[in-house]
Design a protein around this nucleic acid. Structure first.
Lengths: 97, 97
DNA sequence: TTTATATATCGGGATATTCCGATATACCTT
DNA sequence: AAGGTATATCGGAATATCCCGATATATAAA
């Protein structure tokens, strides 16, 4: 867990918003048959308002920080939250920071 | 509590380090008679290695984010952690983010 | 094999951040 | 008042971030 990288990833409103939306994928991104691997980039892009490339880069950054993880299935890439990193972060703030 | 502002303030190694040092002022900044209001800029500057102006700006940024608070006494400004913001942040990560 | 769809990557302009040295301000001492 | 010390602010160079449009890649469908 690289704390600076995580905090950088979190210091942008669009990325914070995506992370919050991903807490309830079926509510915030209706239209998928299944949500086990998360939500595809297309749906996040449409909801965000930003271009597809911008959203893709935001998601990459969140993934590099360990806050989400991706699964490729056919032509789709699904992103979902990696809750372990969130709890590690919360612990870090409480006990070390 | 402005989350983006807080995360920006935390996304720099020097500022994270200062915040950790301020957890134990008497250990990390020996030489002051008293630590009730925190630590003066001079001591933080010396320990950091960065110039006085850079450290002053880092501290201002931490203060704008609510992570530290300052007290002016004579020619010294003392900075100490604002623990309330840390616990609010931890709660935010656990329940909202 | 061609065409279409989904995502990632590239190049770049605009803006923000990081850090510095120089200077301003504020307070204390003499 | 003059000089010394502590801190804040200013101007700027180097670098990073944000967001875009264009393009590359990967898979699927015809």
């Amino acid at each position: 867990m690289n704390q600076v990288e995580i905090f950088k990833a979190l210091s942008n409103q669009a990325r914070l918003q995506i992370l919050e939306w991903l807490k309830k994928p079926e509510v915030n991104f209706p239209g998928q048959a299944e949500y086990g691997d998360g939500v595809c980039v297309q749906l996040i892009h449409q909801k965000c308002g930003f271009t597809q490339s911008t959203v893709s880069e935001h998601l990459s950054m969140l993934q590099r920080a360990g806050l989400v993880q991706s699964t490729r299935k056919g032509q789709w890439t699904y992103y979902k939250r990696n809750e372990e990193t969130f709890s590690l972060l919360s612990n870090f703030i409480q006990s070390e920071l």
